[in-house]
Design a binder for these strands. Structure first.
Lengths: 194, 194
DNA sequence: CTAGATCGCATACATGGCGTATGTCAATTC
DNA sequence: GAATTGACATACGCCATGTATGCGATCTAG
């Protein structure tokens, strides 16, 4: 079975995304040289410009991929709980833990907003943000949470979770700090309950 | 009265900081060319490297200056309230309003962390973060707030406030969105009360 | 008071990364 | 099977940062 043209293109896209993802995570967006990571992928900058239009286009694609993985992991966590509030907190615990990983922290949470602008204005918004919005909407409908502005509540909670994760990641003993972060976050979230 | 050598150096530093501040705010850190804004200040890159060691050094100095102004404005706001909890909320209201300003948003909240790394690990930490820590410590001592981890609570609240501000700033009608942001934030903060 | 040392800043140069225009070869189409 | 399309490579120009060098003004020593 010979590879079709579209298959080959999909493969080069995947290779470039993988190489870019590794480089962005390790050196940061600004310090990652296109020649370096396209070369590492066995390609040249020509392929990158053809497929993604430029360096920022590749960053978008990388973020989209990571976002999809984050969404899946959060959904997986919440599925283990029957109580809606517990499921809600479980998703945020997963989010905070993921924000600890250097790859997600650097690419999605630091360089992404700085290079592409505020995530809430991205053309393809982060799926995990949308998901949290839906969760909160359900909690409000069930009378578990006060009737607050959906997008606002989601943004506030995301910001709190992100900073919690950054602080944990930067601490000397992340493992010891993580439970305190989760605890403090849950107390904050209590403020939204009916 | 003739200018001393130190006086002149202080003036060039001030000029460079002012020019860099304007350029970083308008075009973002990465897009701001050193030749451009040093030229606008009537100087050259030589002066910049001599005084600040490089582009990132200037960014640090700019952030330090803005941080000082933010601290002053927050202190001013809280001084108008007698009730400790009201004063605490007033400071955060001021913080959210300040995060709306493109200059602060772009330089301190977006590019700063992306270029210099996590603020909590900066050599000269943000003074306004320290201030919030102290406020929370006082509230805990007075029994107004639950005994939570100081740095963690401050980080969470700052993250929530930051994202609230970003969302407001990115909305179509910032003036109409701001009150909802403040309201949601105060509800969250309620979660920390004893 | 003057000569030399110092220091703040400008100038010139080297390096390297991004973006674009052009070329090439393989796959598709008729 | 010839022509065309399209995916990707190659080559070039431009611009930005960082560094090494040079100059002139201020401070200092005798």
């Amino acid at each position: 079975m010979t590879k079709s043209r579209a298959d080959k293109m999909a493969e080069t896209r995947a290779r470039l995304i993988a190489a870019g993802r590794a480089a962005f995570a390790q050196k940061g967006y600004a310090e990652a040289s296109m020649d370096d990571f396209t070369g590492a992928a066995g390609l040249t900058r020509g392929a990158l410009y053809h497929n993604f239009g430029g360096k920022t286009g590749l960053l978008q694609a990388v973020i989209e991929q990571i976002d999809g993985e984050m969404l899946a992991r959060m959904a997986e966590e919440s599925a283990r709980h029957d109580d809606p509030w517990a499921a809600f907190l479980a998703e945020y615990r997963a989010y905070i833990r993921m924000a600890l990983e250097p790859e997600i922290q650097r690419i999605v949470l630091l360089d992404g907003p700085a290079v592409l602008g505020d995530p809430s204005r991205w053309p393809r918004q982060l799926a995990c943000l949308d998901r949290v919005r839906d969760l909160i909407a359900g909690l409000i409908e069930d009378g578990i949470v006060q009737p607050v502005d959906l997008g606002m509540a989601a943004a506030l909670l995301n910001g709190a979770a992100l900073n919690a994760a950054l602080l944990v990641a930067g601490s000397d003993a992340p493992e010891a700090t993580l439970p305190r972060a989760l605890d403090t976050f849950e107390r904050l979230a209590e403020g939204l309950r009916a």
